[in-house]
Amino acid sequence: MSIGIMSKQKNGKRKKRGSFKDNLQLLSMALPTILLLAVFNYAPMFGLVLAFKDYKVTDGIFGSPWAGFKNFEFFLKSQDAWRITRNTLGLNFLFIIVGIICGVIFALIMFEVKRARQVKVYQTISILPSFLSWVAVGYIVYALLDPTKGILNQIIEFFGGKGISWYSEPQYWPVILLISKTWQGVGLGSIIYYAALMGVDQELFEAAEIDGANKLQRTWYISLPQLVPIIIIMGLLDVGKIFRADFGLFYNVTRNVGALYPTTDVIDTYVFRALMNQGNIGMSSAVGLFQSVVCFITLMVTNSIVNKISPDNALF
């Protein structure tokens, strides 16, 4: 989470311009990065014209004939538009809210651990799932949810219930994805809040203690208010990315099972399938363009809000 990237040059300090030779050397040092970004980040931006093209491999991106808004029409008429937008926004919104609440609670409890050594042990264990790729998390979820062998159904059946065929019942999946995401990310996500708590002036807590505040009151009236700014900022930064789904989570944890699409299909997985399975380059790039543009707008809006609240934390 880096902050203040486009910050203006400090006032009052006159900038000394280096020699031509120095600048040439410096530029040559930045050259690999410039070239890589140009090829792998900027070229695809121009490639977005594909959304308006009827792509043919032999004609290339720019040689292919124009298709106007045909690709967009095809998408909007497909009934998928509403579903994938709703899933992307709804699930991401759920992830943001629950992610923040769990991260903050986790950090507050971690703050109550008084020995540095214990903090380290607990942190290491809670971060362990964050080292895993979504592919590996998919395996773990599978071990829990497999209808015949999974641990969860064993537990349900042990208590006399009837096992659920998880991979064909889409209604459970928002919760399953939420739990997977929280399990994987809460340890790491809480660190930023924990660091903020460590920065709170200790005298505040001591003063409150002298005034007779108990632990819960100290948490509620001191720790939590101190966290509010960072909570708002983390939340806004996440909202800025709300139109981009975590492809790895949605693709691997659901094992890309078709029966689950009603609740788990998001823009990113939809684009992927349209491209790889149907080879529908026109429509998939139309959806991609829609996503990029909306994403850009939300980022600009949320950033300008962050800028108003706390210029130090704005991205630019």
Binding site: I5, M6, Q9, K15, K16, R17, G18, S19, D22, N23, L26, L27, A30, T33, I34, L37, V39, F40, N41, Y42, A43, P44, M45, F46, G47, L48, L50, Y55, I61, D268, V271, F272, L275, I281, S284, S285, G288, L289, Q291, S292, C295, F296, L299, M300, L315, F316
Partner: peptide, 30 residues
């Protein structure tokens, strides 16, 4: 480096891809 002349331009160039991206399809084609 304070003696670099194009800090602002280069910063923008490097940072802009985090705001706007071409996405999967054009990258795949390219």
């Amino acid at each position: 480096r304070s003696n670099f002349r194009y800090t602002r331009a280069l910063t923008f160039f490097i940072f802009f891809p985090t705001l706007f991206s071409g996405g999967m399809v054009p990258s795949y084609i390219i």
